[in-house]
């Protein structure tokens, strides 16, 4: 059996990858996928903690996180589509009408 620390390490790695992806990539869709990766990294550590503590709260929270992620996906993709219809591009560096 893998010790709990292993799961937490993988989760931290995945989370950092997600954060770097959001900060470095410029395509709205890819940034969005990186956010999803962050959420799934959190799910992994929640389940690991839940096992470690022998307490179900963490696993219940994982279901809530999945629901919330699904709701966010639907809104986020709708926004990407609206943006693409008007601009023919989803590069976040090219949308900068609002500044100051």
């Amino acid at each position: 059996m893998v010790p709990a620390g292993g799961y937490l390490l993988v989760s931290a790695l995945l989370f950092s990858l997600g954060v770097m992806g959001v900060l470095l990539r410029r395509s709205a869709i890819v940034m969005f996928m990186c956010v999803e990766m962050m959420l799934n990294a959190v799910n992994l550590s929640l389940v690991a903690f839940s096992r470690l503590l022998g307490d179900p709260t963490g696993q219940v929270l994982v279901f809530f996180v999945m629901c919330v992620a699904a709701a966010e996906v639907s809104v986020g993709l709708a926004l990407v589509i609206a943006l693409f219809r008007n601009r023919e591009s989803i590069d976040v560096d090219q949308i900068r009408l609002l500044r100051g």
Binding site: V19, V22, A28, M31, F32, V35, M38, L39, V68, E72, V75, G76, L79, V80, A82, L83, N86, R87, V92, I95, R96, L97, L98
Partner: peptide, 15 residues
């Protein structure tokens, strides 16, 4: 679109 996209991406990031 731009406002909502920025709010969404940063908001999801903060989540």
């Amino acid at each position: 679109n731009e406002a909502a996209m920025k709010y969404f991406l940063l908001g999801a990031f903060a989540t």
